[in-house]
Amino acid sequence: DLSALRVEEVQNVINAMQKILECPICLELIKEPVSTKCDHIFCKFCMLKLLNQKKGPSQCPLCKNDITKRSLQESTRFSQLVEELLKIICAFQLDTGLEYANSYNFAKKENNSPEHLKDEVSIIQSMGYRNRAKRLLQSEPENPSLQETSLSVQLSNLGTVRTLRTKQRIQPQRTSVYIELGSDSSEDTVNKATYCSVGDQELLQITPQGTRDEISLDSAKKAACEFSETDVTNTEHHQPSNNDLNTTEKRAAERHPEKYQGSSVSNLHVEPCGTNTHASSLQHENSSLLLTKDRMNVEKAEF
């Protein structure tokens, strides 16, 4: 173990290094160091905050020279020094078990990766560091076993998940096959086929009936047209017969005018059967003409 005197000496050296690497504005270890034209180094955030307070150039807090945003430059070497100082402080805390008085939040800088452990060898070769390295080497064999167990647990979990997924996939297939086998029997399929065939026959029977009705309507229309044509021909046949009657009536009127007047009046009210309204109107006109002729003949006879 380190003596108290040596611990104090190391602590004083760390404090001196820390004062050199402090920012003059925030009085902390410089984060993202930036250098000016006057070779003074500050935190990048502190300098941008200072420049944004005034429009135009501002003055350096140490030498009062003008500073602009374009004049600022990043210093990589200074950032490396800060990183190495942080590593020294971490090693000091691990070796002594004491917390550094002016320690900052170094938890963000710590890294437990194997590459980081290899890099620590180049920091300080001390008894405390050696003991700590031995402890780490002793704890390393235990870690692979834990990793193997965790991997086995994960693989077993994956296997159970896969088996569950396969079961879920197989179950719908089985149910679907069961439904297909038990849903419709052979008799049901035959009945469905016969039902479809009967429906098709009914459709075939319905369509000819409609065509037959249309044919019957067409035949009825044709018969009505033929009947009207026969009526017209009958009226045409009746007209010459009426003319013959008129000639006979004229002759009778010349011989017996008194008797014919009474008979002509009675004939006005008689309509021949089986004739249309057109034929009756023609008869009325003929009878009126005959009456006028008879009157003329009677007057001539009187004179």
Rank of each mutant, 00 (worst) to 15 (best):
D1V: 13
L2T: 01
A4I: 10
A4W: 01
L5E: 09
R6N: 05
R6H: 07
R6F: 04
R6L: 05
V7M: 02
V7C: 07
V7Q: 09
E9K: 13
E9Y: 12
V10Q: 13
N12S: 04
V13G: 09
V13A: 03
V13D: 03
N15Y: 09
N15R: 11
N15W: 02
A16R: 07
A16G: 05
A16Q: 12
A16I: 08
M17H: 15
M17R: 15
M17V: 08
Q18Y: 10
K19N: 03
I20N: 07
L21M: 08
L21G: 11
L21V: 05
C23G: 15
C23R: 15
I25R: 02
I25P: 15
I25K: 05
C26I: 15
C26D: 13
L27W: 11
E28A: 11
L29D: 11
L29R: 06
L29G: 01
L29C: 11
L29A: 13
I30D: 09
E32R: 13
E32K: 12
P33L: 14
V34A: 06
V34Y: 04
V34H: 09
V34T: 05
V34M: 12
V34W: 07
S35R: 07
S35N: 10
T36R: 13
K37Q: 02
C38D: 13
H40S: 11
H40Q: 11
K44H: 02
K44S: 04
K44T: 08
F45W: 06
F45R: 12
F45Q: 08
C46W: 15
M47L: 08
L48V: 04
K49S: 04
K49W: 07
K49M: 00
L50F: 10
L51E: 12
N52V: 14
N52P: 04
N52A: 11
Q53L: 09
K54T: 06
K54Q: 13
K54G: 12
K55T: 03
K55S: 07
G56I: 01
G56W: 02
P57H: 06
P57C: 02
P57R: 06
S58H: 07
S58E: 14
S58Q: 01
Q59R: 06
C60T: 15
C60H: 14
P61A: 12
P61Q: 04
L62T: 06
C63T: 15
K64L: 02
N65Y: 11
D66F: 06
D66V: 03
I67F: 06
I67C: 02
T68E: 14
K69Y: 04
K69L: 00
K69W: 00
R70P: 06
R70F: 13
R70E: 14
S71R: 10
S71G: 12
S75V: 09
T76F: 03
F78I: 08
F78H: 10
F78E: 02
S79D: 10
L81M: 00
L81F: 05
L81P: 14
V82S: 02
V82E: 11
E83S: 06
L85Q: 15
L86D: 13
L86K: 13
K87G: 03
I88Q: 01
I88L: 01
I89C: 10
I89P: 09
C90Y: 06
A91T: 06
A91W: 01
F92R: 15
F92T: 14
Q93E: 09
L94R: 11
D95V: 15
D95L: 15
T96W: 00
L98I: 04
E99V: 01
E99Y: 15
Y100L: 09
Y100S: 15
A101S: 14
A101V: 04
S103N: 03
F106H: 03
F106P: 12
K108S: 00
K108I: 14
K108T: 01
K109E: 06
K109W: 04
K109D: 11
E110N: 13
N111I: 04
P114A: 09
E115K: 04
L117I: 05
K118D: 09
K118Y: 15
E120Y: 04
E120R: 05
V121S: 07
S122G: 03
I123E: 03
Q125T: 08
S126T: 05
M127G: 14
M127V: 13
M127T: 04
M127Q: 00
G128T: 12
Y129S: 05
Y129F: 08
R130I: 08
R130P: 09
A133T: 04
A133W: 07
K134S: 07
K134H: 14
K134V: 12
R135V: 02
L137Y: 03
Q138D: 07
S139W: 08
S139V: 08
S139N: 07
E140D: 08
P141H: 06
P141T: 10
P141K: 06
P141G: 07
N143I: 06
P144R: 07
P144W: 08
S145E: 15
S145P: 06
L146N: 11
L146T: 05
L146K: 15
Q147E: 10
E148S: 07
E148G: 03
E148A: 06
T149K: 12
L151R: 13
S152W: 12
S152T: 01
V153K: 12
V153S: 10
V153C: 09
Q154H: 03
L155V: 10
L155M: 10
N157T: 05
L158S: 12
L158G: 13
L158K: 11
L158P: 14
G159L: 04
G159H: 10
G159E: 11
T160S: 05
T160K: 06
V161P: 11
V161Y: 10
R162S: 12
R162F: 10
R165V: 14
Q168H: 00
Q168G: 06
R169S: 14
R169Y: 01
R169W: 03
I170L: 14
Q171G: 02
S183Y: 00
S185H: 03
S186D: 04
E187L: 01
T189I: 05
T189D: 14
K192N: 07
T194N: 07
T194I: 03
Y195S: 14
S197I: 01
S197V: 01
S197N: 07
S197D: 01
G199R: 10
G199T: 04
G199E: 07
D200E: 02
E202D: 10
E202C: 00
E202T: 12
L203K: 08
L203E: 14
L204Y: 10
L204A: 09
L204H: 14
Q205F: 00
Q205R: 15
I206A: 11
I206S: 12
T207G: 12
T207N: 01
T207M: 14
P208A: 02
Q209I: 05
Q209S: 13
G210P: 03
T211G: 02
T211M: 14
R212L: 02
R212A: 10
R212C: 05
R212G: 09
D213H: 12
D213A: 02
D213L: 00
D213M: 00
I215Q: 05
I215K: 13
S216D: 11
S216C: 05
L217C: 10
D218Q: 14
S219H: 05
S219W: 00
A220R: 01
A220V: 02
K221H: 11
K222H: 08
K222G: 15
K222D: 13
K222L: 01
A223N: 13
A224G: 01
C225F: 00
E226I: 02
T230K: 11
D231V: 03
V232G: 11
T233A: 02
L245I: 05
L245Y: 00
L245P: 02
L245E: 15
T248R: 02
E249L: 02
K250R: 02
R251D: 10
A252L: 10
A253K: 01
E254S: 06
E254I: 00
R255S: 14
R255F: 15
R255K: 08
H256I: 14
K259G: 09
K259Q: 14
Q261W: 00
Q261F: 06
Q261N: 05
G262E: 07
G262W: 00
G262T: 05
S264K: 13
S264P: 14
S264V: 05
V265K: 08
S266L: 01
N267D: 06
N267E: 13
L268M: 14
E271F: 01
E271S: 04
P272C: 06
C273N: 07
G274L: 14
T275R: 08
N276G: 03
H278S: 11
H278P: 10
A279L: 08
A279R: 12
S280R: 03
S280Y: 14
S281L: 02
H284S: 14
H284T: 04
E285L: 07
S288F: 00
S288N: 06
D294G: 14
D294K: 06
D294L: 00
R295F: 14
R295A: 08
E299Q: 14
A301V: 04
